[in-house]
Amino acid sequence: MSTPQDLLIVALDAEGTRPVRSGELSLALAGAELLDLSKSRAVHLDGDRMVPGDLTAPTDRLLKEAVASLVVAEPFESVGDWLWRRGRDLTATYMAAFEAEGLVQKQGIRHFRGGHTALVDSIPRRRAAERWFSGEPVLRTLAEGLGITGEPTGEFQEIADDAAETVLAAVNGALQELEAERQRRSIEEAAYDNVWRSPE
């Protein structure tokens, strides 16, 4: 399994301080993809620019799609731009892949609206849980940025990879930017509502 797949499993499985929203998760999944592409040397970072490397390296289908969408001409794409572009609706893409692979199933009464998608017991789910509870730092940092918490059973591990630190910092920045934009829109909508409610 890839880091984005593990992250999605953790997001579906773990309890957090707040529900994980698809927009935030999509940004984090795009970051997770980039971390895997960097690890496989399909991409290397020059500052915050993504320079294509061995584009044949990924074997995972969705990571191959990610590689196919890379900007291969100078000045190349920044990590931040990648997160916003690749992250658009990425949660839905991964959920569709999980459904196709039988890793999730719909729960709830068929005749009524609602219900939810739940993970089935599977080897990928167990592997993701093992990685999560071992305290693996990249996965935990991505998950904690989404408000997912939990006590690792393994020892704390530091991130010693400059590229990983760059990507994780960019994901954190994008998540903060998204939240700030949501708050700005909420304030504007509240102000608009107040105008219509005020007496003449």
Rank of each mutant, 00 (worst) to 15 (best):
M1F: 03
L7W: 01
I9R: 01
V10L: 01
V10Q: 00
V10S: 00
L12E: 02
D13W: 07
A14M: 11
E15W: 03
E15I: 02
G16E: 00
G16W: 00
G16D: 00
G16V: 01
T17N: 02
V20Y: 01
R21Q: 08
R21V: 07
G23F: 01
L27R: 03
A28R: 08
A30Y: 11
G31Y: 05
A32F: 04
E33S: 12
L34M: 13
L37G: 05
K39A: 15
R41S: 07
R41Q: 12
A42G: 14
A42F: 11
V43C: 12
V43E: 08
L45G: 09
L45I: 12
D46N: 15
D48I: 10
V51S: 09
G53M: 11
D54A: 12
L55P: 07
T59K: 12
R61M: 09
A66E: 02
V67G: 00
A68W: 03
A68K: 04
A73Q: 14
A73L: 13
E74F: 04
P75G: 06
P75R: 05
E77R: 14
S78Q: 10
W82Y: 14
L83W: 04
L83V: 11
L83R: 05
R85N: 03
R85S: 09
G87I: 03
T91Q: 05
F98C: 01
F98T: 01
E99D: 13
A100I: 01
V104S: 07
I109H: 10
I109P: 00
R110F: 09
G114K: 02
H116N: 06
H116F: 11
T117I: 11
T117P: 01
A118D: 10
L119K: 04
V120Q: 06
D121W: 03
I123C: 00
I123P: 00
P124C: 06
P124K: 02
A128T: 12
A129Y: 07
A129M: 13
F133E: 13
P137C: 13
V138C: 12
T141C: 11
T141H: 08
E144R: 07
G145V: 08
G147E: 10
I148Y: 02
I148T: 07
G150T: 06
P152G: 06
T153W: 13
T153I: 14
G154C: 11
G154M: 11
E155F: 08
F156L: 15
Q157G: 14
A163S: 15
A164E: 15
E165C: 09
T166W: 02
T166L: 03
V167M: 09
V167C: 09
L168N: 07
L168S: 04
A169K: 14
A170V: 08
N172I: 01
N172C: 07
G173H: 10
G173E: 14
L175A: 10
E177H: 11
E177M: 07
L178K: 11
E181N: 08
R185N: 15
E189Y: 10
Y192H: 11
Y192W: 08
V195A: 09
